[in-house]
Nucleic acid binder design. Structure first.
Lengths: 194, 194, 194, 194
DNA sequence: CATGAATGAGAGTTCATTCAT
DNA sequence: GATGAATGAACTCTCATTCAT
């Protein structure tokens, strides 16, 4: 596959992403993507066999970009509290953004493909790496006297599960900004922040 | 609708439930249910217009039965700790039971029907009622000196979000019994239990 | 499947037969049959899964009718020579009828399905039963002094292989009536007939 | 067309032959051949318009080689019986070799292209030339007292039709080595051989 | 000459939904 | 009420064929 093909493949993945954001994963058909990309029926099959394969590629792209964003926040010079607050603020936005988000599609995708190995499960990898980062942040905060925490690893995991809980509740039952704030406040209080 | 019709409708809902447990919500077709119920294609349409309507009925039945179970645990005489532990143990089973559970179907259903009013959203109602119960339990526990907790309502909500987080992570990425235990322990430590 | 369904199934098989006669087996699609029968796309799938299944049914019908025809010829009172001549005359017609015959379709079908058991292979069954009949005829002819033949079974088989050879040559290379006559004459001379 | 083109065309035909042996004629697509030859899709079209054209070329090559083989057997010094036995032994192998043979593909090809002139029909040419050779052999055998035969031409033709019959029955219904032997024996007895 | 990306026609198949009985 | 045959829309997937490079 030449240079041009790589370009086109990327174009398809990016365009398909929009479709997944709009319709989730299951409702999306190859035809939907063909139409969104404005290419021929057969053309799409030159690059991907089915929607799962396309979505896997979307996730790969997604995780690359997310990783970048994450490291950006950290390399900046700021206190642990600042960074954690920034992270939670981002998460809040993500949680409340019911539409215009890949969240639902990702869940639907893994409902169908929950047999993936740990390595291939982007969701898991991101979860675990986020836990690590938060743990590190808390440790630094504790050293600096910003946080109080006995079990940093446990707290980090707890935070991530709460965030996951908020996400799924938001997607399935709806959640107000205030409700999210309330939970984030609770978390911060646990580690001794205002 | 006569007595017989009511009977048949209930039969359909109960049979359909099994299908939803097995296949989730989206993958289930009217045909699947017709075949599971061994009734005629047209016959099903006399009672339900589509799978959403059937699933709504499944949920209604579900919530009635769940409510019962819940109140049962509480009416027994036992300490707050005992009841909470029992509740969490039940939740653990539910979380780990990847198959043979309606969980995935429920999520999928609300992904499609997330525009339901608060009243019609069984998921939300159950979440909120569970929060109430836990809050009450904690309050009782605090009075009895079993728990230590400043913000009982906040803690109750936090617990429920963690449980939701565990549930969705289990469904999409897999979760070991140990991993669940670890999180439940963390929760219990927060409120001053072993 | 009720009485009406049986009727319709038969209608489809009979209509499909015409299509197979015209186009052979491999070139026929489900769509071809749908159009020939003037039924809906989905309607055909109610009765048959694929063209092989339909063709199997065509063959079943065919063999029933052929068996009848055969026994008819035999029950009439006539000399062995008469019956054999009649049989060969019928075969000649069949051999020369390049179009308007199922021959090609049958060959194509068995090319694809040559893994059928002896029981399911109509072609084989018909071949073997024809051999039996011819053998019997020759034996009777020998008794009556009409034929001369030492190995009746061998001769009967030989005749059938020649007929098969004529059939396939006719289908693939073309054959003149004279060429067929010449071969049939040769056969008759072998068993001492004019 | 330059020397190189001739080479490539020959390469394609020889590679395609393997594909036809494996899949028959009808099931083979231009794509199959492109992949087997490991050339470009467009590249194949520079040499051939469709599979029929390629197969015609395969047949041409085939007939050249077969002719060679045939003449070889004859030029050796051996009795007529020896040569005929050798020929029949070869035919037996060919008849029983259900896979790894072009037989089925050839039949399928002529089913679709039975409108070819006598000149272009390789099958017919080979049949006729084989008849001639067998006729000559028998005549020689009769002169040498090896065979007894009144109508050498008729017998030769009869033998070829039996062989064709055996071939098609083998392909469509299956045939045991014993069954083939039995028929070949019958033929040899007709011309007064053991 | 050669490549291989791209197109679009067409085959297979499944179901939601209707409707005569 | 109940049945289940029938319809047709919608989707998946595969290739023959073309054409810019």
């Amino acid at each position: 596959m030449g240079e041009k093909s790589v370009q086109k493949k990327k174009y398809i993945v990016e365009t398909a992403r929009k479709v997944f954001v709009e319709k989730g994963f299951k409702r999306v058909t190859m035809k939907d993507i063909v139409e969104a990309c404005d290419i021929s029926r057969g053309g799409l099959y030159l690059y991907f066999e089915n929607t799962s394969q396309i979505f896997a590629e979307v996730l790969k792209l997604e995780s690359e970009e997310t990783d970048d964003v994450f490291s950006n926040s950290i390399t900046e010079d700021a206190t642990a509290v600042d960074i954690l607050l920034l992270f939670l603020k981002e998460q809040k936005k993500e949680i409340l953004r019911k539409k215009d988000t890949l969240t639902q599609a990702i869940y639907e995708y893994y409902f169908d493909n929950n047999n993936l190995s740990r390595k291939d499960n982007v969701l898991r990898r991101q979860f675990e790496s986020a836990v690590k980062v938060i743990e590190k942040l808390i440790e630094i905060g504790v050293e600096n006297g910003e946080f109080v925490c006995e079990d940093c690893a446990g707290t980090a995991r707890n935070i991530m599960y709460v965030l996951e809980g908020l996400k799924i509740v938001s997607q399935t039952s709806g959640l107000s900004p205030d409700a999210v704030d309330r939970e984030l406040m609770y978390i911060l209080q646990q580690i001794g922040t205002e």
